[in-house]
């Protein structure tokens, strides 16, 4: 596998993308993301956010330009080496993309199983993580029987079960209410604090302004990188929560600060106290 020269997790150089013979949906995209950074990918609908994410999680090849992921030039990386790169990337798809014939447990277990993890280890970590996201009583449920929020949590659990170095989420707050949206963002921030590089595509500007992370602004296929901004508003003000919701969210924030995720999924490690995640989700 050819290694690029720097330590950036993601590097795009003059990347263009077009579907078939259509117009370019991404034009001369140049940026790089440092390890451990947190960015929002923002832009109008149709601006190319999903396409950019697809390029990052190796679902598409660029029409031109260079993409480097974890220091590896994708253009010269052989096909059979791609799975190893993909295992370092966790993806929360906008439409979840859960496998409906599998239980919540088996959906979350997939990344570990494709990596060849032993079944006893799979059982231990998946059980812990599903408990952690508050789905301990839905482990055997099929996705179609779960609510949108529950499917969202299964999708997130699947994305983080293998402890990815890069987490991508495409409109993760698109299917949930404001409170759940902010709780999800806290979840991603905690993962980021544990060292995971995070990129979240969203058009929810309240969340973006409230959290103040760096921004990748896409406008008609052109990308601009904006540095982190100071937080402008409180959680409650930004999301227009009721008094009760504000109290609940404040408690959740306090719990998050007091008991972050813990380290996983090494063989001797656990996800920490499952109750702590229940405060988020």
């Amino acid at each position: 596998m050819a290694a690029a020269s720097d330590d950036a997790i993601i590097r795009f150089e003059n990347v263009g993308l077009r579907y078939g013979l259509g117009p370019e949906v991404l034009k001369d995209v140049n940026f790089e993301l440092a390890k451990g950074s947190f960015h929002f990918l923002i832009g109008e609908s149709g601006a190319g956010k999903s396409s950019l994410l697809k390029l990052i999680y190796l679902a598409l090849k660029p029409s031109r330009g260079l993409i480097s992921l974890f220091g590896h030039d994708i253009a010269v990386t052989s096909r059979h080496q791609l799975p190893a790169l993909r295992r370092r990337v966790g993806v929360v798809f906008q439409e979840f993309r859960l496998l409906n014939h599998l239980s919540a447990f088996d959906n979350v277990a997939l990344p570990l199983r494709v990596a060849g993890a032993k079944e006893n280890l799979v059982k231990k970590h998946v059980t812990e993580l599903l408990t952690w996201v508050g789905l301990q009583s839905h482990m055997e449920a099929r996705p179609p029987t779960l609510s949108g929020g529950q499917q969202q949590r299964v999708s997130i659990a699947r994305a983080i079960i293998a402890r990815p170095r890069l987490l991508l989420a495409d409109e993760p707050t698109g299917n949930v209410d404001d409170v759940m949206g902010f709780r999800l963002m806290h979840l991603f921030e905690e993962l980021n604090r544990l060292g995971t590089t995070v990129v979240i595509a969203t058009h929810n500007m309240q969340v973006v302004e409230r959290l103040g992370h760096g921004r990748l602004l896409l406008d008609d296929g052109n990308l601009t990188v904006k540095p982190p901004q100071p937080k402008k508003e409180t959680v409650a003000a930004a999301s227009r929560l009721s008094k009760g919701e504000e109290d609940a969210l404040a408690a959740a924030e306090q719990a998050a600060i007091a008991d972050p995720f813990g380290d996983f999924p090494d063989e001797n490690e656990t996800f920490g106290d499952p109750a702590s995640l229940g405060n988020y989700l």
Binding site: H80, P83, R87, L110, P111
Partner: peptide
């Protein structure tokens, strides 16, 4: 669709 998901989470073709 399911095969694509398996690919994207890192499944080898042989898997």
């Amino acid at each position: 669709e399911a095969i694509e998901v398996l690919h994207l989470i890192g499944a080898q073709d042989s898997y």
